[in-house]
C-alpha cells in the first residue's frame, strides 16, 4: 500500500539518507529503530514533504510521486492521505482540543463544519478526552496534548499515520497513556509507521521492525526475528543496549 524507494537526502555535505527503501502493507505497524542521528526523522519528513529528498520515489494507494520533483498539488494529495504525529505535539495553540481535530477536516479535507465536529467528537472519545473538548492546548498535560495529536491524525482517516517519537518529550509517568492509545489503534488495524525508542512497545505492538543506522536500513523484519535473532551484528549491538530495559518491563 505504501512503497518507498531509494530515498536519498543530504544536508550540505552530510549524507543523511543513502538510499532507503521499504514497504508498508495495510494494517501494518512498522517500528523504526535506530540511534540518534541515523536519519529516522529525516526519512519520515521526506515522506510528508517537509524536506525535499534529493531523490526517491513513493507510492501510496494509487498515487505515485517523485520525492524530489513534485508539484504542491501532489504533495497536498499525499498529505491528505497521511497524517503525522509530532514529537512536540504541535497542536494549534489558538484552537481548542475539538477545533484542533475539526480544522483538519474542514480546511484540509473540505468537510462541513457540522460533519467535522461530529467526527472530531468521536475521535476525542477514542482517545478518552471527550471531557476536554473545549480546553486549549495550554490547559492540557503533555500526555493529553499528544493524545489530541493522535486523535487529530486519526480523524482524517488516513491510509497511514507517521509518528516521530510520540512519547520522547513526555514525563515518564505520562508515556503509558500515549502508548496505550497507540496500542488501541494498532488493535483496530490502523496502519502506522512509528519512530520510537520504546523497545518493549515496539516489540509488543509492531508487525514489522526497521533498524536504521548511518542513513541506511541495516535490517528489517518481523519483531520476533529482529528482537531475538537479528542477522546483523550492528542490530544486535544496538538492541543489546536495551536488553536490561526488557527484563525490567517483562
Amino acid at each position: 500500500m505504501l512503497k518507498v524507494q531509494n530515498v536519498k537526502k543530504s544536508f550540505g555535505t552530510n549524507e543523511v539518507l543513502k538510499g532507503v527503501s521499504f514497504e508498508v502493507d495495510k494494517g501494518d505497524v512498522v517500528a523504526v529503530l535506530g540511534a540518534s542521528g541515523s536519519g529516522k526523522t529525516t526519512l519520515l519528513r521526506c515522506l510528508e514533504f517537509f524536506e525535499r529528498a534529493d531523490s526517491g520515489h513513493m507510492e501510496l494507494g494509487d498515487l505515485s510521486v517523485d520525492l524530489h520533483v513534485h508539484s504542491k498539488k501532489t504533495a497536498r494529495q499525499i498529505r491528505q492521505k497521511t497524517a503525522f504525529v509530532f514529537q512536540n505535539y504541535n497542536l494549534f495553540e489558538n484552537k481548542t482540543a475539538l477545533e484542533n481535530i475539526s480544522l483538519g477536516l474542514t480546511a484540509g479535507h473540505g468537510l462541513s463544519k457540522k460533519e467535522a465536529e461530529k467526527i472530531a467528537a468521536a475521535a476525542l472519545e477514542r482517545v478518552g478526552l471527550s471531557d476536554r473538548a473545549d480546553y486549549y492546548p495550554c490547559e492540557l498535560s503533555g500526555g493529553q496534548q499528544q493524545r489530541i495529536g493522535i486523535a487529530r491524525a486519526v480523524a482524517v482517516n488516513p491510509d497511514v499515520i507517521f509518528f516521530d517519537e510520540p512519547t520522547s518529550a513526555l514525563d515518564p509517568e505520562l508515556v503509558g497513556e500515549v502508548l496505550d492509545t497507540i496500542k488501541a489503534l494498532a488493535k483496530e488495524g490502523t496502519t502506522m509507521v512509528i519512530i520510537t525508542h520504546e523497545m518493549a512497545f515496539a516489540r509488543d505492538v509492531s508487525t514489522k521492525v526497521i533498524y536504521m543506522d548511518g542513513g541506511v536500513i541495516v535490517e528489517q523484519g518481523p519483531p520476533d526475528v529482529i528482537f531475538t535473532k537479528p542477522r546483523e551484528e550492528r542490530t544486535r549491538k544496538f538492541l543489546a543496549r536495551f536488553i536490561q530495559d526488557f527484563d525490567y518491563v517483562i
Partner: peptide, 14 residues
C-alpha cells in the same frame, strides 16, 4: 511555534 505550520500542512491544509 513553526511546528504548527507543518502540523497544518500534514492535515492536508494549504
Amino acid at each position: 511555534h513553526q511546528g504548527q505550520r507543518e502540523a497544518g500542512l500534514s492535515m492536508g491544509m494549504s
